[in-house]
Every structure is written in C-alpha cells, then in structure tokens.
Amino acid sequence: MPTPDRTSLDAIVQAARDILESQGLAQLTMQAVAGRVGVRAPSLYKRVRNRDALVRLVSEATLLDLEKHLNAVPATREPQENLAALLRALRAFAHARPAAYHLIFTNVPAPAKPDLDLLTRAATPLLRIAADLTGPGQTLEAARTITAWAHGFISMELADAFNLGGDVDRAYEYGLTHLTTAITKPT
C-alpha cells in the first residue's frame, strides 16, 4: 500500500519562496524545504527532481506573480503615464519580494532557468507600452533600456547603495520621467 502524500507541490514551492526571502538563495536547499514542509528530503524528490528544478519553480512562481502585478496596473490613454505607473508597480513588487525579484534577474544554470514563455508574458505589459512610446521598430530596444535602468536603480536601492543622501523616491521619479522623454518618438 502506498504511503499517503504529506505535502503538495504548492506547499513545497511556497516553502521555497519563504526560505528564499528570509534566508537567501544560498540557503534554498532541498533539505531546508523538506524541513519547512515537515517531510524528509528524499520525499521531496517525488515532486521536485533536484535543486535546479526547485529554483526554476520558484522563479516561475515569481514571474507569474509579477505578470499579474504588472497586468493589474490600470492603463490610461497616455503611454508616458502608463510607463510611469508600470515602473512604480515594478519597484513596489521588488520591495515586497526582494530576493524573488533578484532571482528572476540572476544567472542560474540552464536547468534552473524559467520557461521563456513566462519571461515573455511577464514582459508583455512593458513591451506594449514601449511600442506605444517608440513605435514598432524600436520596441525591444526601448524595453531593454527601460528594464536596464529600472533594474539598476531598484537593485542599488535594495542594496542600500545610494549613500549620498537625497530623496530616493524623487530620484526614481526623475529618472523615469527623463527616460520616458528620451525614448518617446517625436510627434
């Protein structure tokens, strides 16, 4: 007679996400997750092949959350306002789950990388706004520029690397305003 399941894949992923946020990626191990869900590590292998698969599941859950978060940003008729709202939402997401946010930008081994379709879906709101701002010929370039600026700023902010004083919120608003102006096609 088979033994009853003591945990679920959802519980495993949630435990892994909690460990990631509280202890960091280095501490996200099969053993730590097993302890968190109340089973022995070998039991996890029934549901998750290895640590790379676990990291992938966490990345993918994060991307699904990010996609929902960004798609929930209300759209207006003004692409500049839409970009500002989207970048504020991205920043709020990063502050709410900083380790998970960093994970989606971390270079991990190929088996731990999230599905490209999920990355694309999470990027779709930005790509749509970038197309509105630049026109279809420069959408990808604009989206990459926006992402690089926002991620760089957010990463520095989360690392407490702005040491010269001043208002960081104001600096973020300044940056997104001027970035938006720089990439908007002339009318």
Score class of each variant (00 low, 15 high):
M1S: 03
M1R: 06
P2C: 10
T3S: 10
T3M: 11
P4T: 10
D5S: 08
R6H: 12
T7F: 00
A11Q: 12
A11R: 11
I12G: 00
A15D: 01
A16N: 03
A16W: 08
I19H: 08
I19P: 07
G24C: 01
G24I: 06
L25K: 06
T29G: 03
M30Y: 00
Q31G: 00
A32P: 03
V33F: 13
G35D: 14
G35I: 06
R36F: 14
G38D: 13
L44S: 06
Y45G: 11
Y45F: 15
K46A: 10
R47K: 13
R47I: 01
R49K: 10
D52I: 12
D52V: 14
A53H: 00
A53T: 04
A53N: 02
R56P: 03
L57E: 14
S59P: 10
A61M: 10
A61D: 14
D65S: 11
L66T: 04
E67H: 12
H69K: 15
L70I: 08
T76F: 05
Q80F: 01
N82A: 06
N82Y: 02
N82T: 02
A85G: 09
L86E: 11
R88C: 02
A89G: 02
L90W: 08
R91G: 08
F93M: 06
A94E: 09
A94I: 08
A94H: 02
H95I: 05
P98G: 04
A99Y: 03
A99C: 01
A99P: 05
A100C: 09
A100G: 14
A100I: 09
H102N: 05
N107W: 03
V108C: 04
V108T: 06
P109H: 04
A110F: 00
P111A: 02
P111I: 11
A112C: 01
L116P: 00
D117A: 14
L118V: 07
L119K: 14
L119F: 08
R121G: 10
A122E: 04
A122Q: 06
A122W: 03
P125M: 13
P125S: 11
L126W: 00
R128E: 14
I129G: 11
I129V: 15
A130Y: 02
D132A: 13
L133P: 11
L133G: 11
L133R: 00
T139K: 08
T145E: 09
T145Q: 13
I146S: 00
T147S: 13
S155W: 07
L158R: 08
A159K: 09
D160A: 12
F162I: 09
F162W: 09
N163Q: 15
L164W: 10
L164F: 15
L164N: 13
V168T: 15
D169C: 01
D169H: 03
D169P: 11
R170I: 04
A171D: 08
E173H: 03
E173P: 04
H178F: 07
L179E: 06
A182N: 04
T187Q: 15
